[in-house]
Design a protein around this nucleic acid. Structure first.
Lengths: 240, 240
DNA sequence: TTAGCGCCAATGGTACTACGAATTGATCCG
DNA sequence: CGGATCAATTCGTAGTACCATTGGCGCTAA
């Protein structure tokens, strides 16, 4: 366990998920290039596991679109275009590997696309207490942000956006919570954040929260779009 | 094989993917409710397969977040919130089951979020021939649309949006091509499409294409947003 | 009543076997 | 000499039997 995993992942059965992790990283990082052919026997020997475990691993890898196993040929590493890039594990692996900043950019663009609509949907669908909680989170963020407490600020930021996505009532949006959390964390660890959150960001978080609380969907959407506009500038310097 | 599968899915090994399909559908459709506990032995008996195959199936199901297997307990069906709703198979199953229209709505909202940004990105990043091809597709769509040839129109529509997403240069967007294709197909089969595509949609497709061709990102984005605004009205009657 | 111990069922993991399919190469015929 | 057919090899697929591990549940004793 060098860098952990998104959640605890698989509770008990650590064996098969270990080798899954190993091979997954290798493929995603490009160590195992597209077209490379693995053999099942090779997998079990390198990982020191039995045939059954190796097969289970390959099956999961196959369901992620990372490999494709053909009889008499072997286990063929598939091109990036057939990967399930939305799979949490795949995202995790890519963020751990070389293409980290590229991945962060893709994910940030996805955020920019989704979150404004999520905010609008939340304004329409969120429960009263969720809407109130959003406002409280925004004010807390201002407090910790102005105090320069980046750690607490980050956690609140994550909670804010997570709650926004989950309370949108759209499960596809809600499924992106982990992604957003990873992006936010990755952004700070990569040093893409100013030491103090800019005042404008603090204002916009509150603006979004208040718009959602007042069920003004259109306002929430535009405010969120502005908010993410700054994020774009930080992560994607050269326009789109 | 009652209704097929997104692609050919798994080429040769049909056995494990058959039982995967069966159980997956049952969970997604709610036949196997959240918290329901399966036992591995039960799985192999019901499907009439060996332990090995049953285990592989469970592993894949687990990687999709549909189940979680714990020792001494069994295979526990997980709540919807932990499903990988972006997994192509999960999407497929949901569209085949009862929650079909809910799923279509979620996916349509996702389209509304993503495609405008994808159009903008395509305007910046697409190759010259891709941009040209988009224009030609839009004009073809007009021809077949006005002639009332829905079949051909649908295929062109799919190709148009697919090309838009792939040429955006963002792999997360590109990964949504199958989703968009499914939504478009599902929309027509559900009878949510007018018999003749409305003239405005035809205009907007051309507008988007020309904006992308001329590399006017902002125009492409707004035109695409308008285009999808109509789609929203068709699928999501009651404002978001 | 409750705290702690221990049983055992159910999954996790391994090894071995048989089978089928696809590729490759060798043979045979034109 | 070239092309086509057929067989052997090789690898994934499927099945079975077996041991290891663990954690929930019941039993017992204080």
């Amino acid at each position: 366990m060098s860098s952990g995993s998104p959640k605890d992942e698989v509770s008990s059965g650590a064996l098969h998920s270990t080798v899954l992790d190993t091979i997954g990283r290798q493929i995603v990082s490009g160590t195992l290039a597209e077209g490379h052919v693995l053999r099942l026997e090779q997998v079990q020997q390198q990982a020191g596991v039995s045939r059954t475990v190796a097969r289970e691993t390959v099956r999961v890898l196959e369901s992620m679109g990372l490999v494709r196993s053909r009889r008499r040929v072997g286990i063929i590493v598939q091109p990036r275009s057939s990967w399930n890039v939305f799979d949490p594990l795949v995202i995790w692996w890519r963020l751990a590997g070389p293409g980290r900043d590229i991945q962060l950019r893709s994910l940030t663009e996805l955020r920019i696309a989704v979150e404004p609509l999520a905010a609008a949907a939340a304004a329409s669908n969120a429960s009263a207490q969720d809407r109130e909680r959003l406002v409280r989170l925004a004010t807390s963020m201002r407090g910790h942000g102005e105090a320069g407490e980046l750690e607490e600020f980050l956690e609140l930021d994550i909670e804010f956006h997570t709650l926004m996505l989950t309370s949108s009532g759209n499960e596809m949006f809600a499924a992106l919570t982990d992604v957003v959390a990873v992006v936010l964390r990755g952004r700070t660890t990569l040093g893409l954040m100013p030491r103090h959150p800019v005042a404008e960001a603090l204002d916009l978080h509150e603006e979004v929260a208040h718009a959602v609380a007042a069920r003004r969907a259109a306002d929430a959407e535009t405010a969120m779009r502005e908010l993410l506009g700054e994020v774009r500038d930080a992560v994607v310097p050269h326009g789109v």
